[in-house]
Amino acid sequence: MNKSESKYFNTALRMDEALITLLEQKDLEYITVKELCQQAGVNRSTFYLHYETIADLVNETLERINQRFLSYFPKQEEEVLGNMDSRKREELVLVTREYLLPYLRFIRDNKKIYRAAFRNPGGMQAYARYGELKQHILGPILERFAIPTVHRPYYIAYYVEGIIAIIKEWLRQDCADDVKMIADIIETCVRPKEKQ
């Protein structure tokens, strides 16, 4: 990376962080370019050198978050989804410790991003991000269990919103509780264990 690429990259990172910081304080539609520049310590001309609009910055920030998020997971998506049709029904569980722990670690390590996303779900596309999950994982699992198509949106809403509610509460506690404890709670809610 040459000096100008490095400078460009550092400015972009500062702009991403400025956006996230401001999103914790106010809704996206009330954030101005002037505020973003002040927060990032750059001139307006620098902002417009990188982005045409605030929406461009939001898209770039979300892309960086996605890249960071995927780096937390040990297996590739194909390994999880590849044999969905051939798996036994009892194995069709989305929330496994193998994937839940990295997800929770990412949230803990990126609390600021998640607080901003939940405060501004539209601007940060928080709910749209679950589209892939719904389409590629939850949908096929519900199909395998012969859940009627008209019922599936309700099952999915219950499942996703329940996990989000636990995450929001954990964030309110500043992620003070251990990741493994939160994973246990989510697993128990999703798949209650029988008492022996």
Rank of each mutant, 00 (worst) to 15 (best):
K26S: 14
Q67T: 10
A117N: 04
G82D: 03
N120Y: 02
L28V: 08
R108P: 07
I147Q: 07
E187P: 02
A146R: 14
S4F: 11
V42H: 10
Y51A: 09
I31D: 05
I65S: 09
Q25I: 11
I54A: 13
T53F: 00
K195Y: 04
E187F: 00
N110G: 05
I164N: 14
V93C: 12
N83G: 07
L19C: 07
A128G: 13
M84D: 00
E98I: 03
R14Q: 10
T53C: 08
G139I: 03
H151M: 11
V179C: 07
E60K: 15
G162C: 06
Y72S: 10
R129A: 14
L19D: 03
E90W: 07
A126H: 08
A12H: 07
Y8D: 09
Q125T: 04
F73N: 07
L142W: 03
Y159I: 07
F9L: 13
N110I: 03
F73W: 01
N59S: 15
I166M: 10
E29V: 10
W170S: 12
E98C: 04
N120H: 06
G162L: 06
D177I: 07
E79K: 13
I141K: 07
R191M: 09
K168A: 09
Q25G: 04
L101Q: 12
R105E: 13
H136P: 01
E91C: 04
I54M: 09
